[in-house]
Design a protein around this nucleic acid. Sequence first.
DNA 1: TTTCGATGGTTACAAATGAAACCAGTTTGG
DNA 2: CCAAACTGGTTTCATTTGTAACCATCGAAA
Lengths: 148, 148
Amino acid sequence: MEPEILELESFLPYRLYRLADTVSREFSRIYKERHGLTRPEWRTLSGLGQRGTMTATELGEQSAMHKTKVSRAVAELERRRWLTRTPDEKDRRVEHLALTKAGLAAYREMVPLAKAFERELLARLSVEERVAIARGVAALEKALEEKS
Amino acid sequence: MEPEILELESFLPYRLYRLADTVSREFSRIYKERHGLTRPEWRTLSGLGQRGTMTATELGEQSAMHKTKVSRAVAELERRRWLTRTPDEKDRRVEHLALTKAGLAAYREMVPLAKAFERELLARLSVEERVAIARGVAALEKALEEKS
DNA sequence: TTTCGATGGTTACAAATGAAACCAGTTTGG
DNA sequence: CCAAACTGGTTTCATTTGTAACCATCGAAA
């Protein structure tokens, strides 16, 4: 029996990672060049822009970030005066985060760029391919949620 | 006209990244727990196991790693005596890398685990979903190759 | 030849990350 | 009421990463 070989180029975890890495790296140029944001900072901005107000914990859940990443991103955005913290009345450990005018302005500027990026990426696929990626990604997401 | 909002949860770059991150993190437990390997080290092992002999540059291309990552991973595997370097006859800048017996043994041990991981992940999807993810990922890979 | 730009690979340094310890403050159970 | 367990969030420390500078060698052109 001959030794088994793994073909890295067709190994799903590798392919997914490389794909995500490439896409993410390319997209990051947008917020990096424009505002010098890191990915956690971008996600924080985006999360708060979308939902209006969240606590750090909620932010972490929504954008799949470890709490230390959230903590640092929030600190940096606060330093820029892009967000403010409001202590919770009932539970003094909790702070409610919200974007300031400046933060909201940055968010509003980024949204169309983000959408355009996604649109242009998907435009290179056929309709069936777009359906396939949407379906496949959704299926994997669901599978991972359930099992773990 | 109301302000545009970006829904992070449906934004493809974010979804891809989170997916890859989850899968990769879960898979990494296998080589991390078993041998204390980092991802670049695992990819190096895997690349050499698959191809037999490669230069550092080739390794970087095959496994999508920056050359510093390759350099460090190779150094570590060499330290473990899992690989050896053979200077190229014609070009003295180049070294040909190959796994030792020990390295090959580790590789052979890892391959079935990697395959099982992938199989179990895909087993949670329906046939159509498996087709969809394969097709979608391939399409995106192709789109990214061409454009950039 | 000699020089100069490219290439294979390593190293130094700064920034980003993760794990674990930590500090409040809160809840639970005795 | 009080101690113990828990939770929201921050900080510390070690590791990983990326960028850029670097060293050696090579190839092409003058």
